[in-house]
């Protein structure tokens, strides 16, 4: 009989690159944090140091090839994203990902033809559950992740801020700096939006940097959903295959 090692949690995911891109974005916004694995799925929530942005991840257990959480109701593990990102940057096409939590150790395995095992320390963090921001969104838009990436990349070079404006039919993204402005119009009728719904013609502005940081995670996403309201935080959901979701909240800039 083979030796069976009991671990606290074992998460087996079929595409390591999705995690590489997600963590690539998270790393830019928060330095460290605590993942919580329960029977329902894997989640993570943290504020950035300046409390302007929040990262909120949920990946249902059904999206994993194998998902085991032993004994207890939940398993928590703290990671340094800088370290985790360094490991995941090695993920290639065809690599599968296994994350194993074993006591104070964390194993990250990249499997394709061979298996590469990285052992990184867990960091001990006090974990307190953050509430979800309470915002009544008035505007909702969904687009392909490629559209989202193009919009941010179009605005990035000459903008300090990104302003979303809703009209009855279209979503406007406006980038602005001291010297230049850029404006992009998206609508369902033109095919740039998948869904659009605006209760009122609201607008709000945000620092462009946070959107630049989201680009990596958008690379692996299927679609991106944006929700906002007049001078309220924006909620950007990266929607992944199998029901995974990485959400960013960014508080508004007052212009």
């Amino acid at each position: 009989m083979g030796l069976v090692r009991m671990v606290d949690a074992r998460l087996y995911f079929s595409d390591a690159r999705t995690w590489r891109y997600m963590v690539g974005s998270i790393e830019k916004i928060v330095e460290e944090g605590v993942f919580v694995a329960t029977g329902e799925g894997l989640s993570f929530r943290a504020l950035d140091t300046s409390h302007v942005a929040m990262v909120d991840l949920f990946y249902p257990s059904s999206a994993f090839v194998e998902y085991e959480v032993s004994g207890k109701d939940s398993v928590e593990f703290g990671v340094s994203f800088e370290l985790l990102a360094k490991v995941l940057r090695r993920a290639r096409k065809d690599d599968e990902l296994v994350i194993e939590v074993d006591g104070e150790k964390l194993y990250v395995k990249l499997k394709s033809r061979g298996e590469r095992v990285f052992k990184i320390p867990q960091i001990m963090l006090s974990y307190e559950k953050l509430p979800e921001p309470k915002i009544s969104f008035t505007v909702r838009a969904r687009m392909l992740s490629s559209t989202f990436r193009e919009v941010v990349k179009d605005l990035e070079p000459h903008s300090e801020s990104i302003t979303f404006k809703a009209t009855d039919e279209a979503l406007l993204a406006v980038g602005r700096s001291d010297i230049a402005t850029a404006e992009i119009e998206m609508s369902v009728s033109r095919g740039s939006l998948l869904d659009f719904d605006a209760e009122s013609n609201d607008k709000a502005s945000y620092s462009i940097e946070y959107f630049s940081e989201m680009l990596s995670s958008a690379q692996a996403a299927d679609s991106v959903a944006i929700r906002f309201a007049e001078d309220a935080p924006v909620r950007v959901d990266m929607e992944y295959l199998g029901g995974g979701r990485l959400t960013f909240y960014v508080s508004p800039r007052l212009e």
Binding site: M54, K134, A232, S251
Partner: peptide, 11 residues
């Protein structure tokens, strides 16, 4: 020096 809303205002 300008007012900067943080997410805590919305939690």
């Amino acid at each position: 020096l300008k007012p900067r809303p943080t997410l805590e205002d919305f939690l």
